[in-house]
Write a protein that binds this DNA or RNA. Sequence first.
RNA 1: GCGGAUGUGGCGGAAUUGGCAGACGCGCCAGAUUUAGGUUCUGGUGGGAGACCGUGGGGGUUCAAGUCCCUUCAUCCGCACCA
Length: 804
Amino acid sequence: MAVPYHHREIEQKWRKHWEANPVNVQDGTKPKYYCLDMFPYPSGSGLHVGHWRGYVISDVWSRYKMMQGYYLIHPMGWDAFGLPAENYAIKMGVHPSKSTAENVANIKRQINEIAAIYDWDREVNTTDPEFYKWTQWIFVKMFKEGLAYEKQMPINWCPSCKTGLANEEVVDGQCERCGSDVTKKNLKQWMLRITKYADRLLEDLDKLEWPEKVKKMQTDWIGRSYGAEVNFKVDGKDESITVYTTRPDTLHGATFMVLAPEHAMAKELATPETEAAVEKYIYDASMKSNVDRLQDKEKTGVFTGSYAINPLNGAKLPIWLSDYVLADYGTGAIMCVPAHDDRDFEFAKKFDIPIIQVIAKDGKEIENMEEAYTEASGTMINSGDWNGMESSTLKAEAPAMIEKMGFGKKTVNYKLRDWVFSRQRYWGEPIPIVHCEKCGCVPVPEEELPLLLPDVESYQPTGTGESPLADITEWVNTTCPACGAPAKRETNTMPQWAGSSWYFLRYVDPKNPDALVDRKIADELLPVDMYIGGVEHAVLHLLYSRFYTKFLYDIGVVGFDEPFKKLFNQGMITGKNGIKMSKSKGNVVSPDDLVRDYGCDSLRMYELFVGPPELDSEWDERGIDGVYRFLNRFYNLVMSNKDLDVKETPELIKIRNKMIYDITQRLNQFSLNTVVSGFMEYNNKLIDMSKNGGVDKETLNAMVKLIAPFAPHIAEELWSQLGNEGSVFHVAWPEADESAMKDTEVEIAVQINGKTKVVTTIDAECSKDDAIAAGKAALGDKLTGTIVKEIYVPGRIVNIVVKP
RNA sequence: GCGGAUGUGGCGGAAUUGGCAGACGCGCCAGAUUUAGGUUCUGGUGGGAGACCGUGGGGGUUCAAGUCCCUUCAUCCGCACCA
């Protein structure tokens, strides 16, 4: 007789019970485990089944860690400042403070549907003045340490969002947020000196258990390279041009020089004959947008009419201008070795410039060179004193040699740029700086923080490069904290990344009025052990957080310099044909109906069952039936056996221990999809056992414990139905007795020449000879020809190799 | 262009790391229960009459290859003139 599984009743019952008796009791005597989700920004469109996945993964992992005996820290909060929230507010015509509060309430309600065990006592919101007080405090500290500074420069500007952007926020020349083409705008900006941390950010990646993909992305983003700066005298002038090169070994092969059109010396190098062409080229380059410049792969350039002298051999090198040289990398000028660089080769071919090979390929000089030889391996040729040296050795030694010879120096270069930190928008933390005519930039005194964001009616971005705050004269006009003279407040706000760069620290001490985090508590509960979220923040949030943490470590706020020990990137749940779920595509699947029809437990398990957690998975609505049926059968298995008082048998003991072992192992490997299929497999086995004498309570209890992190409601219900006291989440994770898992007999495949012919059963402990004999017997007259070799893989295969 | 990931039945995906390919589930087929439909239960389900053939394609190593090596194709992602 089937006992109906009423998921709605069961889930409501336990939801209510847990509200009164929280499962996650915080016990500081146990070792801590901090499992963190990337906190969401409170979007207006709510959660879809894709959002569920990350939260389910982290909740399963959290509950597992809790049952393993850890003091679990599993907080949640809101990344509520910034462009997405503000753009939404503008679209809806509501004040961002209002829409943000509404959206937080809505998403919190939706997140509660997942039944995750968040510590709501630790909840933070980046727009809360008690929170952003510390966001501002960090900025003041950085200012005092010289890490925050003002600079006038052309920055990335999004004409649609009407604000400056950090390099990290520009993707393919477009705004990361809205997709508009990014332009340049010359603005006075606050910058954070993240480049000072470049080496540490790069080298400490080794300490982290992060996906290699993310580490690689950060490595490439930081982009460290070793080389030399070399000075070239301009022929007939006193000045010289400094270039940066990673291949000083090829110095003899330089046949021309190229400067970026923005280079400070570009104009003055022009001769009367070339002046017009040079000025036109510089002007044209300045009119090209970022996007155009990225797309035009065909090399262009103009000869300045001037020459540089190769300091090594005195060769006269024509100086060109071309926009394939970037103004803001290295020195904005390069020496060109067409024989050994693809780009220089292309340029030299196009403008008919000589090509001199200085590294032998396969020991020879190449006749009719058709492409550059870019390997740093081979013997130096055509290189004066350097002839005969190995190029890889020379590449490493040349910077020091050049330095000794007095025309250059050893250098390191990075692609990483300082972080453009100010935004010309309303919805962010005000930058706590006062501009005084006499004292310059003066930070707001720490005891006056937070500097509140003024409540205004008009918060639309101006587009002029000024923040909307600039219009609020009564707020802007203030006195200098240093000298008391009339002064003006900084009106730019911080980017959306400011709060998210350190929020995970605040969770462990969320209400502390005197410190960002109490150092003692920080030492006990931080850093984050497991961080779960999407891969889209690889060079944004994850890089910024590491930078902030290192800074806070340096000033003694925390005692560790990496925030996230482990990182897990869950794959995306997509709609049909791998299309990203979005409102505009109309392919969003809402979890609400599924929870109503199948229950939270079914949806949680199905979110995991769809595929490996690290890969993208297409959502197929029909599949959830399978999980739902499984929970029904499992419920019936327990309900129909719980009062039978079945004695455990060797067979049951074996299944129970194998089940514990298998499930735990798969869980430890984070193979959550196969954990779910493992439950189904063992459920089927136990149903078979149930039909042949029943299943004992110990085994049922074990399975309930194992399934608890995945399907908490049904587990709690069955735990109590089995007559146990208290919550299943407060009992220890079961351990497998490996000695009880051994089979006495095993099935082996019997093969001839590697092809399976029959399957037979043998004693698990039997010797090689016995196994082969048993295999031959099982083959009978299928075995013909001359036996060449006999192979036995214990417990698996007997293979007889024969010749006809 | 450079780098990375992926490729297995009608579909989602397993495979103890070189040892019976297709676990588990969806779907489908047949049967049972039901007044009937749905639910539930039982059995079947890679292809082929067959010997055999089958893990994107081709080659190789091995007693044995989805797994290792070489080569090639397709899709997706990241970076993109960084000297």
